[in-house]
């Protein structure tokens, strides 16, 4: 009971923080729209895209949703370093609460922010001409939740190895961008050179993009169940691993 309330408390604080930094929400909506409208339309007009009936813009729409979740979750997860620098992490770490609950609460809180962005993007589907039904909406949200928890866990995991926000650019270049570019968010993952295909399937986000594409535009490489299973596995793995590392490295974190 106390643990559940602890998770709830940590979630609540994270959610409050998200909502109170309004500028963050605006950027988080503006960037994907830029991608969809400028990049999607620009490249879409330049190439003859045979991938989907709806054209390139519709094709990358699920990919851009995934990208938004990825960026939000990793940067917020790594943002736990700011808590550490401000000393607020100490206040949480010294509470009579298990480290796993702290991590899980934190990941749920971060995911909440990403989900709010996903909802807004789903509601904006008319911009790229994708029809939105309640079923598509709910299905997409469920997949988005799985992606978000996994990526927040990954962000927290990375944070446990960093000392300051100085390393954040490194994370962006070496973790976030590769995950995004290799996920097939911007191109079809079929017909790639085999070495690239191999790396693409190592990328957890590939399964998220594929699942969302399946639900939203009915076009996917893998069956939805496989994608969902991989995402569930990835989410559990990153949460358990970060909880483990946080317990191990507890002393350095305070």
């Amino acid at each position: 009971m106390t643990e559940i309330e602890g998770i709830y408390t940590i979630w609540l604080r994270e959610a409050k923080r998200y909502i109170r930094y309004r500028s963050r929400i605006i950027t988080a909506i503006f960037t994907p729209l830029l991608w969809l409208l400028v990049f999607g339309m620009g490249l879409g007009s330049a190439i003859r895209f045979g991938g989907t009936a709806g054209g390139y813009q519709q094709f990358i729409y699920p990919g851009i949703i995934s990208q938004t979740i990825l960026f939000t979750c990793i940067s917020a997860g790594v943002g736990i370093i700011i808590d550490k620098q401000y000393g607020f992490l100490k206040e949480i770490m010294v509470a009579p609460l298990s480290r796993s609950s702290i991590i899980f609460g934190k990941a749920l809180g971060i995911s909440t922010g990403a989900i709010i962005q996903t909802i807004i993007l789903l509601l904006l589907s008319f911009v790229v001409g994708v029809p939105m039904t309640p079923l598509i909406f709910i299905g997409s949200l469920l997949i988005a939740i799985l992606i978000a928890i996994g990526m927040s866990g990954l962000g927290l995991l990375i944070a446990s190895f960093l000392d300051s926000m100085e390393g954040f650019n490194l994370v962006m270049s070496f973790v976030v961008l590769p995950i995004f570019l290799l996920s097939g968010a911007l191109f079809p993952v079929t017909g790639l050179p085999s070495w690239l295909e191999f790396i693409v399937y190592l990328d957890p986000l590939t399964y998220g993009v594929d699942a969302l594409r399946n639900i939203i535009i009915g076009d996917s490489v893998l069956p939805l169940e496989i994608n969902a299973l991989v995402l569930i596995f990835f989410a559990i793995l990153t949460i358990v691993l970060s909880a483990f590392i946080f317990t191990k490295k507890e002393q350095d974190l305070m």
């Binding site: 309330e5 602890g6 709830y8 408390t9 609540l12 604080r13 409050k16 923080r17 109170r20 930094y21 808590d83 401000y86 000393g87 607020f88 100490k90 206040e91 949480i92 509470a95 009579p96 609460l97």
Partner: peptide
């Protein structure tokens, strides 16, 4: 060890819950 974007009361509520 304060969160700058929470209120004083919220800090107390959070602590009580934790």
């Amino acid at each position: 060890a304060l969160d700058d974007i929470l209120t004083g009361r919220e800090h107390l509520e959070m602590h009580a819950a934790l």
